[in-house]
Simulated assay, not measured.
Amino acid sequence: MSRDQKMDPPAPQAPITDAGMLLGVRKVSVLMPGIIVFAVAFGAAASAKGLSFLETMLMSAFVYAGVAQLVAMELWRPEWSWGAIAGLAVVTATVNARMVLQGASLQPWFAKYPKVLNAFHLFFFTDANWLIGTRYQAEGGRDLGVLVGAGLALWLVWVIATGGGYMLGALVSDPSRYGIDLVMPIFFAAMIVPLWRGRRGTVPWVVAGLVALVTARLVDGYAFIIVGSLAGAITGAFRDDAA
């Protein structure tokens, strides 16, 4: 075997296929109603806060942060100081910190693909992609087209629905008033159930939930997302080492 053959990792057999992208679109279609409702709520909230239509659309297209965008609207103000900007950055970074753990959980899959392809699809990476990818990988799937297709479909729907929400104005600017804030948690709960792997996963799940609840009661803001996730991950790691 030559030196080049030893240094170059084997290329994946199916880096990305059209069939995989279509499969991703089908898998994510069940989440579309919740995504649309949340995007409409964000667009309406942005309109109520005084953002222009262009600013709102650009935020959804290029920031594309889902829940973090709604959180940002809650903290939005007509006049900004450097302290307020820093505070908003910390809060949104905290909300999005879960993506670090989600990406790490799928890294063994991602690592087999070119960095350019990973950089592209990770821009569209969301909670929904992670749930879909985790289930798909657990079933033996390896075609990254599933994540690319799901991500592109979600992004497109999010941007379009944001525009519709902006046009509706303040009609659904308060998601909790209509129970909209419960839509995504219900979808995520339904998607997570098939990931259950028996009693072995009980302890990390329970620890993560309890720590997150306690943190939410004791600490203002969204620190419970990071603390709960880390508690569950560390617990799971120690249990794996002890096995």
Rank of each mutant, 00 (worst) to 15 (best):
W76S: 15
T94Y: 04
N118S: 13
N96H: 04
W82K: 09
W130K: 08
T162Q: 02
P175F: 13
A84L: 13
K115T: 10
W109A: 13
G140A: 12
P108N: 15
G145D: 11
N129G: 01
Q107C: 07
V172R: 01
R98H: 10
H121P: 05
F110Q: 09
G145T: 06
P78Y: 00
S173G: 15
W109Y: 09
Y166N: 13
G83W: 03
A170R: 02
A111G: 09
L171W: 03
R177D: 12
R142G: 11
A89S: 05
L117S: 07
R98M: 14
A86T: 10
A97K: 07
D174M: 03
L171G: 04
D143F: 09
F110M: 10
L88N: 12
M99Y: 13
Q102P: 00
P114H: 01
K115S: 08
A170Y: 00
F123I: 08
F125E: 15
I85W: 00
Y178S: 08
L154R: 14
G141P: 13
A89P: 01
L168E: 15
W155G: 10
T92S: 02
V100F: 06
Q102S: 04
I160T: 04
A119H: 02
P108A: 15
N96F: 02
I85L: 01
R77D: 11
F124K: 09
V91N: 03
L117G: 07
W76Y: 15
V157T: 11
A97N: 10
W82L: 11
V146I: 10
A97T: 09
G145R: 12
E79L: 10
V90G: 04
L156S: 13
R77A: 12
A104M: 10
W109V: 10
A104K: 08
W155A: 10
E139K: 03
A104G: 05
A89Q: 04
L171Q: 05
A97Q: 08
A119E: 01
L117E: 07
H121F: 12
Y166M: 13
W109C: 11
G164V: 00
T162V: 04
G145Q: 10
N129P: 00
I132G: 04
L122V: 07
F110I: 09
L117Q: 09
F125Y: 15
L122S: 12
G133W: 07
Y113R: 14
L101D: 07
Y166P: 09
A111P: 06
L147E: 11
R77E: 12
T162A: 07
R177H: 13
P175R: 15
A119K: 00
L171D: 05
R177K: 14
I132W: 03
G140Q: 08
S176A: 14
G141C: 14
V116M: 14
I160K: 02
A170E: 06
A111Y: 05
I180A: 04
P78G: 00
